[in-house]
């Protein structure tokens, strides 16, 4: 897949949060939301620290964007329709439906989500209207390796492999 330099930088940022999640022993998924070329939300999964299995990075970011819009006096609906989402893993069924509800402009993701993916495991777009454009496959192997490392329970914050993998792909 092809991404512009700016988009690549956004994905790089999302990956930073995925690595942070792994270090924090959370499912390593990182995400940023961009509105008019500005990052308006960023973060990672916080499921374990919140003991709430719904605290995926996308849900966390949706709330940050809401705060941002309130702060700036922006119309929430209109703003979300211009939001581009960059996330290291295909959004799950729950999150992609939330993003469809808000009508975000586009979603760019890294690897497929074999466990919960909103396209891969159950195609949410097949049962509802969804204006959102979705494309995946950016640094997919790296994103998948992060997940594998997490599910293996391997020490997440080993710097050499991190540096190596990231150096190779970007």
């Amino acid at each position: 897949m092809e991404l512009t330099d700016t988009e690549q930088q956004f994905m790089e940022k999302a990956f930073e949060y995925a690595y942070e999640a792994l270090a924090a022993k959370e499912v390593p998924v990182g995400c940023i939301f961009v509105y008019k070329d500005e990052i308006v939300a960023l973060g990672r999964n916080t499921v374990n620290e919140s003991r709430n299995a719904t605290r995926h990075t996308e849900i966390n970011c949706i709330e940050q964007v809401t705060d941002y819009c309130r702060d700036k006096g922006l119309d929430l609906g209109a703003a979300f329709r211009q939001v581009c989402v960059y996330v290291t893993v295909e959004p799950c069924i729950m999150c992609i439906n939330a993003l469809y509800d808000l009508g975000v402009h586009s979603v760019v993701f890294g690897c497929k989500n074999d466990r919960f993916g909103g396209q891969t495991v159950f195609d949410v777009g097949s049962v509802r209207q969804a204006p959102t454009r979705i494309k995946g496959g950016w640094r997919a192997e790296e994103a998948m390796n992060l997940l594998k490392e997490f599910y293996k329970g391997v020490n997440p914050s080993a710097p050499p492999s991190k540096v190596k993998v990231r150096g190779k792909k970007t």
Binding site: R51, R55, L76
Partner: peptide, 23 residues
């Protein structure tokens, strides 16, 4: 409040709170 605060989502967060979590 937040577009994510559907009734079920709020109830789930209350359960998380009962387990010393919740956001």
């Amino acid at each position: 409040d937040y577009p994510t605060k559907h009734a079920v989502m709020v109830a789930i967060d209350e359960v998380a709170r009962s387990q010393k979590g919740g956001v």
